[in-house]
């Protein structure tokens, strides 16, 4: 069983959703990003997504774009992502990497998978790589025992959800709304609908991301999803340091533990 599967077995036994927190590696610096990830895990995140800052983040809104720019300006290099993942793993945390495809392609898909596995990473989330183009990554993830988390969207057809779910391992990432990353007032009904449609095609856990920013929203999403994924809201708090970040992560962790009330 993959380590992500074990994670979800645990949270299912506790009858709660998992909390997944996103932070970019190297933001604001490589060293500080390790501390921020540690604070997120200590406050109760079950899994962290370590983002790779990238020059052309078309899936990201202003918050994560600005953080990526800062990280790159402060000297983030791709090899640092392995160092950051290792810092999470060495203190017993679980990490997957979220990255646009070109850095992986350019590094070498198999080589990236090997180095990520060696650093203790559990898998990859690929926002601009769909299973259609993922032949090399399917092979490399099998070879190195990594989970491959693909995304489904409200606009995905039944066929595409089926195809995506079939290629995915670990969990399916459901993007709650049509749009880019960024904290939102509400995550919308489309998320619950998408999770429902996706469940018809897979028994894999389903995580919902894009827009969650508060404990209440986390609780709302936790009522229908297996994982609540929080990015921009954490990145915003990260600017205020580990204490502020830890407080938000703790609020979100409390949210995913609230008894589920049907929406």
């Amino acid at each position: 069983m993959s380590r992500l599967a074990q994670l979800f077995e645990g949270t299912r036994a506790e009858k709660r959703a998992a909390l997944v927190g996103y932070l970019p590696a190297g933001y604001p610096t490589v060293g500080e990003s390790k501390d921020l990830l540690a604070a997120t895990i200590d406050a109760g995140a079950d899994l962290v997504e370590v983002g790779v800052p990238y020059s052309d983040p078309v899936m990201d809104g202003p918050t994560i774009q600005a953080a990526a720019d800062t990280a790159l300006r402060n000297g983030f290099r791709l090899r640092h992502v392995f160092e950051v993942v290792e810092s999470v793993a060495s203190r017993g945390g679980r990490a997957v990497v979220m990255t646009y495809w070109n850095p992986v392609f350019h590094y070498g898909v198999d080589r990236f998978a090997r180095d990520l596995a060696a650093a203790g990473g559990l898998g990859l989330i690929t926002p601009d790589l769909t299973p259609d183009e993922a032949g090399d990554w399917l092979a490399a993830s099998d070879q190195h025992g990594l989970d491959r988390i693909f995304l489904v969207a409200p606009s995905s057809s039944e066929e595409r959800i089926a195809l995506t779910a079939k290629a995915t391992t670990g969990f399916v990432y459901a993007t709650a709304v049509m749009g880019v990353t960024g904290a939102r007032e509400s995550v919308g009904a489309s998320a619950a609908d998408l999770v429902g449609r996706t469940r018809k095609h897979t028994d894999l856990p389903i995580g919902v991301g894009l827009g969650v920013r508060s404990g209440d929203q986390a609780a709302e999403v936790a009522a229908f999803a297996d994982a609540v994924i929080v990015g921009s809201a954490l990145v915003t708090k990260a600017a205020d340091g580990t204490a502020a970040l830890g407080a938000l992560a703790a609020e979100l962790a409390e949210g995913v533990r609230r008894p589920a009330v049907p929406a």
């Binding site: 078309v58 899936m59 495809w101 926002p127 601009d128 790589l129 769909t130 259609d132 183009e133 693909f150 995304l151 489904v152 969207a153 409200p154 606009s155 995905s156 057809s157 595409r160 995506t164 993007t175 049509m178």
Partner: peptide, 20 residues
């Protein structure tokens, strides 16, 4: 069928745009 000229081309964009 999937837009490849030799190894080049294809579709490297978010799933949200695949339908469009």
């Amino acid at each position: 069928e999937r837009g490849h000229f030799g190894p080049y081309g294809g579709r490297f964009l978010p799933e949200a745009l695949m339908g469009a």
